[in-house]
Design a protein around this nucleic acid. Sequence first.
DNA 1: TAGTGGTCTAGACCACATC
DNA 2: ATGTGGTCTAGACCACTAC
Lengths: 236, 236
Amino acid sequence: MTDRPAPLASSKALNIAQEVRRRIIDREWRQGDRIPDEVELAIELGVARATVNKALQLIAEEGLLERRRRAGTHVTVNPVRKAVLSIPVVREQVEQAGRTYSHRVISQRLRPVPAKVAARMDLAPGSQLIHLRTVHLADDAPFQAEDRWPNPAAVPEMLAVDFRRDNANEWLVRNAPYTRADLSFSAENANKRDVLLLDTRPGQALLVLERTTSNDMGAITHVRLAFHPGYSMSAE
Amino acid sequence: MTDRPAPLASSKALNIAQEVRRRIIDREWRQGDRIPDEVELAIELGVARATVNKALQLIAEEGLLERRRRAGTHVTVNPVRKAVLSIPVVREQVEQAGRTYSHRVISQRLRPVPAKVAARMDLAPGSQLIHLRTVHLADDAPFQAEDRWPNPAAVPEMLAVDFRRDNANEWLVRNAPYTRADLSFSAENANKRDVLLLDTRPGQALLVLERTTSNDMGAITHVRLAFHPGYSMSAE
DNA sequence: TAGTGGTCTAGACCACATC
DNA sequence: ATGTGGTCTAGACCACTAC
């Protein structure tokens, strides 16, 4: 075994990470085991400790290792599975599928916010928000029904915006960056409004994504997105 | 302005990351703008370039910045929203909610795999897999219905396991580490089996998670998890 | 071809939790 | 008390790619 280039996947740190994963998967290091410390691995692998550190931190983020000062690095016993979901802007999502995007705004007006939404947004019940209902289309077929409550207190200029022209999602992303987002997924039976917007039948199971975004000043918007029947969201 | 400790949120790199986020959110750096290069920021902030590099890479992963050699670092125009979902082992999920976990195995036997599942697992149609149906309970109320197809070819010992005693999920996590997992979320109307297992009514909208895990040797297991009505999964 | 980010190194000091 | 990971630094070289 020489020190020739080797296949060289990419970087030293990533190669080390891959080697560590292999040792875990091949049971050379078993669940709960303490693995050699950084200095030891650095010597064994002929790299600087910082490089080993980077690799191990990466794997720890993935959940396969647990690291504690003084206690060392251990192979996680019950790895928590983590999934990263990408939630693109609707338009891009549709266009990336090679379909034509369009949208129709059903209504836009000031209204007192319903209690349930107010709670999510941490607002006083009865606050006046903009209420926006939109349907997003792919090749003129309903793709997603949107029910949105933007908060003018977060960005006063939004009162002057005509969301019939400027897509609300994109306008908000550009003009009201958020620092926190709370997401939840659920399944709901289609209600009357969903039936109209998504051209489906009552009771049809719909994947629903609810998102509340906020910044240091408070809530920016709450939105309920109902996807067309049969839609599934993939990760990893 | 002295060099005294300062509030010190956590680490220099994280403080820098926070400051960069602030500049983006406060529009000091606008969407599409090129920001100063690493050397410049390092001098301005009085730290090593590696520290700036770490902070900027972090933010780039979050999606707020785009970095290209030679072209520099730019503020992302349409940030893609990313969400990290934690998908714990069912038992832990139930117990963390302060409820008592139990499960009932409905059936466990060798069967030819259905075409749809075979496709997902990239197996020859008609392959013999273990078929396992389980319901997971929280305080004796149905929580999640599981329909699982473990592949004995991945870990031959699994043929000898009695999954009535050893929870399949936990046994597999411990004995068949995977390197890849494909996830998808969808909404389905409850079928007859779901109605029985989850004690609900036909047509009820259910959140369904399907997961296929595999390692270098091929597919380990495919599983369909149907949650009880009203369940919602949160992120971030 | 030159400017930018990507990575690595050797060394140092610190923070923390176990021993 | 002390071993372990966490972080930072100054410097170096490399890999892209826009110019």
